[in-house]
Design a protein around this nucleic acid. Structure first.
Length: 620
RNA sequence: GGCUCCAUAGCUCAGCUGGAUAGAGCAACUGCCUUCUAAGCAGUAGGUCUUAGGUUCGAAUCCUAAUGGAGUCACCA
């Protein structure tokens, strides 16, 4: 017979059931196929075994089988399980007072390490943020950054060696647009002489370029050439507006004056033209300075940054190399392609006819470079779901190339962020700027904290730190609680909300514990004689015991929202407990039990939130 | 049009490796601060889990189809 040897009750119950069925009925069920849930609150008990799957196979009544299983579990549990009841095919098990005390002792002693190192120590690269250098970071980047950071933290927690990385798209048409507009209309503006943050200044010229081009395009539309083209090429009933909207790219590439100036600049850049390179370096430096400030404000950091300007050539040479091997093919115009039709995709362009590189070109180079640098076991790309197809094509191309790391690549595809008014559109100025947003949530936290007035005794710097933690806590939690794959609506009003299922609500649970601990004078003795563990205390222990499982699931699925929802559930249970149960002035045994319990709760909450990139304040 | 993803309360989201009467928060309404921080707690109200079939002892969960929405199918990223 199987005997309970750990405090992982679910696992022990599963093992006991599996062993019992094998011994008594010669019926083989894998332990992890035995369904054990926490008992629903409408019934008596703590854990529940679902009997239906066995009832059918063994042709026994649920009550009969439940009776046998219940007895087997009680007798093999080393007094941890004291009784059971059977209702409609569910076997509800009731744990003994002793088991809760043993469990508390165990989770308290291991509270700092509970759930850690459950995965093999492998090297994972997590790529996130990966901005273009032509404009500042916005709300979309924030979701990306928070997801990437949190996945990185979670993987580290379960024992992986993680390297935070990004690929900065620092070259190409986009940055040339900003550069060109700055040359034309910049009046030598710099971050220093304007006081504008570097990335915002460059973004300003990106917008300026767009205006210049739109003006040029609009002027051209009324020329005879344009009108003739419209009449000649329009689809049936197509309005002039609709036609010219669709023609925009073609105009930019083939007719636009400012468009050809942009391409000229790009070619000069590739030819190492000194003036272009120097302007490029200067404007990128402004941008990086701005990005660094945003990352700092968000409290995230990177271990290794790759730049497209440094990897695109490697990509080109790899493609040339595999072209020679006959894996890729060249069209008459000189462009190079890979045929992915055998894996259900299309033909994909790898290199333009003029020899310049596209997105996938440098991606191939970057992947190779990363493998040379880190020999990673796993590579996670945090990139929005509008690029699903691109990553399929990239991964399939690398597989065709026989890259040894091709199977370890994973695209963490997340949904777009919408505003209540709909999609964010840069053209309509509805993009939510990252820096503005961060400042706003902190200001909101400051305003509420001042209303509460609990921080009077602190210095200004201490207060500011707390406002920042609360504001960022609200923002980050709001975004990360949603499953990554789902498209989400970002309501600015709700994001600064601090009541209910929010970051500050969870922080507040932690703060309440700290407040009690400060008043407890550190006195905390034995609770060996505590005889009546309360329902709320059991619930907290059940949740704490489930933390390792939640953590592992979050790591395997790369889903931080699991941790976020767990933290909320634990905080909610704590708030209820705090309200219902006296702690400091309870009888000694109860007081000791409860202080030990809430200290464990606080640690697990703090660890959970840290995995989401959220810091706990000691007061609020 | 092909392919991919999504659809749960008025709103924002959990639950989805099938299990008991589908859960939270926000918004609305009602209570609870001389007692460890009320950024809290308790309660009322709110649902044909988009629809139609199917598999199953059992379906929000799995399968098929339809509907609605999004993305993608660039010598953009």
């Amino acid at each position: 017979m199987h005997k309970f040897s750990t405090l992982n009750f679910i696992k022990e119950i599963q093992n006991t059931v599996s062993t019992f069925l094998a011994d008594s009925y010669d019926h083989v069920v894998e332990p992890d196929k035995v369904i054990v849930n926490t008992t629903s609150k409408d019934f008596d008990g703590d854990y529940t075994v679902v009997l239906f799957p066995f009832v059918k196979a063994l042709k026994k009544s649920p009550n009969e089988l439940g009776e046998e299983l219940g007895k087997a579990i009680v007798s093999s549990s080393n007094s941890l399980c004291k009784g059971f009841n059977i209702i409609k095919g569910f076997l509800n098990l009731e744990l003994s007072n002793e088991s809760w005390k043993t469990l508390l002792k165990h989770v308290f002693e291991t509270k700092d390490s509970l759930g850690k190192d459950q995965m093999p120590e492998q090297i994972s690269l997590v790529e996130f943020s990966s901005p273009n250098t032509n404009k500042p970071l916005h709300l979309g980047h924030i979701r990306n950054i928070l997801l990437g950071w949190s996945c990185s933290m979670i993987l580290k927690e379960v024992g992986q060696k993680v390297i935070n990385t990004q690929i900065v798209n620092d070259r190409g048409v986009a940055i040339c647009k900003s550069m060109l507009a700055w040359e034309k209309a910049g009046a030598n503006e710099t971050p220093e002489n304007t006081g504008i943050k570097g990335d915002h200044l460059v973004g300003k010229y990106y917008v300026a370029f767009d205006k210049l081009f739109n003006q040029e395009y609009k002027d051209w539309q009324s020329t005879e050439d344009a009108q003739n083209l419209y009449v000649e090429k329009k689809k049936e009933d197509q309005s002039q507006e609709g036609f010219f909207k669709g023609y925009k790219n073609q105009y930019f590439n083939n007719q636009s004056k400012i468009g050809s100036e942009t391409r000229e600049m790009l070619l000069k850049w590739e030819d190492q033209d000194a003036a272009v390179r120097s302007l490029w370096e200067q404007m990128n430096a402004w941008v990086y300075d701005g990005f660094d400030k945003t990352y700092e404000a968000l409290r995230v950091s990177f271990d290794k940054i790759y730049y497209e300007s440094e990897t695109y050539k490697l990509g080109k040479s790899i493609i040339e190399q595999y072209l020679q091997k006959g894996l890729f093919f060249k069209k008459e115009d000189g462009s190079i392609w890979v045929d992915l039709e055998d894996v259900g995709l299309d033909k994909k362009l790898l290199l333009r006819s003029d020899g310049t590189s596209v997105y996938i070109t440098q991606d191939i180079g970057t992947a190779q470079k990363r493998y040379e640098d880190f020999s990673m076991d796993k590579m996670v790309y945090v990139v929005g779901n509008e690029q699903d197809y691109h990553f399929q094509a990239l991964f399939e191309t690398l597989k065709k190339m026989g890259a040894s790391y091709a199977d370890s690549l994973y695209h963490l595809s997340y949904g777009m962020v919408d505003l209540p008014s709909g999609k964010m559109k840069s053209r309509e100025g509805t993009v939510v700027d990252a820096d503005d947003l961060i400042a706003e949530v902190i200001a909101e936290a400051r305003a509420s904290a001042q209303e509460f007035g609990n921080l009077e005794s602190l210095t200004e710097a201490e207060k500011e730190e707390i406002f920042t933690r609360i504001g960022l806590g609200a923002l980050k939690y709001f975004i990360i609680k949603v499953h990554p794959k789902k498209r989400m609506t970002f309501d600015p009003k709700q994001s600064v909300d601090m009541q209910g299922q929010t970051g500050p609500y969870i922080q507040n649970a932690f703060v309440r514990v700290q407040s009690i601990l400060r008043k407890s004078d550190g006195t905390n003795g034995s609770f060996a004689a505590y005889e009546s563990v309360e329902e709320a205390e059991k619930q907290l222990l059940v949740l704490i015991a489930s933390f390792p499982t939640v953590l592992l699931e979050a790591a395997v699925e790369l889903d931080p929202s699991k941790v976020a929802n767990f933290a909320y559930a634990l905080a909610k249970e704590f708030h209820r407990f705090y309200h219902d149960v006296r702690i400091l002035n309870a009888p000694d045994e109860a007081r000791n039990f409860r202080i030990t319990l809430i200290e464990t709760v606080a640690t697990i909450l703090e660890r959970s939130m840290r995995l989401l990139g959220i810091d706990m304040p000691a007061r609020m």
